[in-house]
């Protein structure tokens, strides 16, 4: 009786953690999509700030940081703080630094990060037209990443959830087999 209880607990632990792992994987797909969407939204805001009011970047980034939730907004807020505090760094460098610091918090993959980094090119270094063009370029590339993320989510989200649960079950069976326990003994 005692032994059965331990085994049962172990099995449940395996199942729950495997399912959670699958859930996490599935959720990261959704979060990546959300973060990419936040980023697109931020680019739109930046475009507006630059083209209509020519707001200086530190201020524009601060506004974006306040309007966009989560780690993406935080990247902009942090870059804004860096620009204000430093007198050794331009906007591009501040952006790259802030992006790097925020890598752990976002669900961007390497490709997404590369695109986001491109915003730093000529940031604050050209006239309005040049800035808007650069933002549009980044935004267009982001659109591809977004589409890819959307498809990955639709395709794989459910898969990861199933994979978690089924993987857990498979592990349990594997252990039962190895210990020579008739796995009906569990039930």
């Amino acid at each position: 009786m005692d032994e059965t209880f331990v085994r049962l607990t172990g099995a449940i632990c395996i199942l729950v953690s495997a399912a959670l792992w699958g859930e996490m994987k599935a959720r990261s797909l959704g979060l990546r999509l959300a973060h990419l969407q936040h980023f697109q939204q931020a680019l739109r805001l930046l475009s507006t700030e630059i083209s209509y009011t020519a707001t200086p970047l530190p201020r524009a980034f601060e506004v974006i940081g306040r309007r966009i939730n989560g780690p993406v907004g935080e990247i902009f807020s942090r870059a804004s703080r860096v620009m204000r505090d430093s007198n050794e760094m331009g906007a591009g460098e501040a952006w790259r630094q802030s992006l790097k610091q925020g890598t752990g918090e976002t669900y961007f993959n390497q490709e997404d990060l590369k695109i986001a980094e491109q915003l730093g090119i000529s940031l604050g270094l050209s006239d309005r037209e040049g800035q808007i063009k650069q933002i549009q370029l980044v935004s267009r590339q982001m659109e591809y990443a977004l589409e890819e993320a959307r498809q990955a989510k639709n395709k794989n989200e459910r898969m990861w959830r199933y994979l978690g649960v089924l993987g857990g079950l498979a592990l349990i069976i594997f252990f039962c087999k190895r210990e020579g326990i008739p796995w009906k003994a569990l039930t």
């Binding site: 020519a54 707001t55 970047l57 331009g90 501040a94 604050g124 270094l125 040049g130 800035q131």
Partner: peptide
Amino acid sequence: QLISNCSLYA
């Protein structure tokens, strides 16, 4: 960048 507050476009 330092002169223009990182915003030459302004």
